[in-house]
Nucleic acid binder design. Structure first.
Length: 259
DNA sequence: ATGGTTGTTTAACAA
């Protein structure tokens, strides 16, 4: 089974690329982030004609997550208990959706950006991550994949110039500690072993030809519970998807699971 | 160099 995660930066704007990506790599489950669409706005025809089901969450122009699966889409859950806003109307704008696809519990996550250290959104980001961790601790016994845009660069080599990020979000100690907490609980970054070395990024800002100069960040991850990690046979970043006009600012990350 | 680009609810915006 092949699963993937991709911050598409608008599913409506990117639907042709999404369909081409699914075809090109024969993807079974695709978790997408920043769909920027209400559920009724989703372009589904090309997906359903390919045999995919779609479950989506999120209603505003910035967030929004979805799971696109052709191996089943069961036990769909929007958000997780104790998430800020859980049970409130705001939960409809959740940045998390989970489902069981082909026997694997997949969570498509869009971790809050944080905006700036000291901003209320930064505190919200850390709180959100703590709530996710709490919930995710209950999912380690089965095959679980926490995938998506974490908006955290865990290591200095995960940004193009660590000195340029002094005082910025994505690289602060509390954010990195929040990321490491998932690893401490038994989740593994299943992509890094297959994509070694520095300058392996998943995101390049649209500004200033950052992609062409490979000035990027590694902030999109697939974290696997022990039973899932044991099945990973390979992984790659589809860097070419970021090239050319009409690309998202993120590249897809693809992981292969043994049956 | 506080710039630059892209998205959508086109903004005293968010990423």
């Amino acid at each position: 089974m092949r699963i993937a995660t991709w911050n598409v930066n608008s599913l409506r704007k990117r639907i042709d690329r999404v369909e081409a990506f699914l075809d090109r790599h024969d993807v079974d489950v695709l978790a997408v982030q920043e769909t920027k669409a209400r559920e009724e706005q989703l372009p589904l025809m090309g997906l359903t004609s390919r045999g995919y089901e779609v479950a989506a969450a999120g209603t505003n122009q910035w967030n929004g997550v979805a799971i696109i699966s052709r191996v089943g889409l069961e036990q769909v859950q929007v958000g997780f208990p104790d998430q800020p806003g859980w049970g409130e109307p705001a939960a409809a704008e959740s940045r998390a959706i989970g489902a069981v696809c082909g026997g694997v519990r997949v969570w498509s996550l869009y971790v809050p950006n944080g905006r700036a250290v000291g901003d209320p959104h930064y505190a919200y980001k850390l709180d959100w991550l703590a709530r996710l961790r709490e919930a995710a601790q209950a999912w380690t016994d089965g095959p679980t994949a926490l995938v998506g845009d974490f908006n955290i660069a865990p290591q200095d080599d995960d940004v193009f110039d660590i000195d340029a990020f002094a005082g910025s979000t994505h690289v602060t100690a509390p954010e990195r500690a929040a990321f490491e907490a998932f690893l401490a609980d038994g989740y593994a970054d299943v992509v890094r072993p297959h994509t070694p070395g520095p300058e392996v990024y998943t995101y390049w800002d649209y500004y200033r030809q950052r992609f062409e100069r490979n000035r990027g960040m590694r902030i999109d991850f697939v974290l696997g519970s022990p039973p899932l990690a044991a099945r990973v046979g390979g992984a790659f970043v589809d860097r070419e998807e970021r090239a050319g006009t009409g690309a998202s600012d993120h590249a897809p990350v693809v992981v292969d699971l043994d049956d």
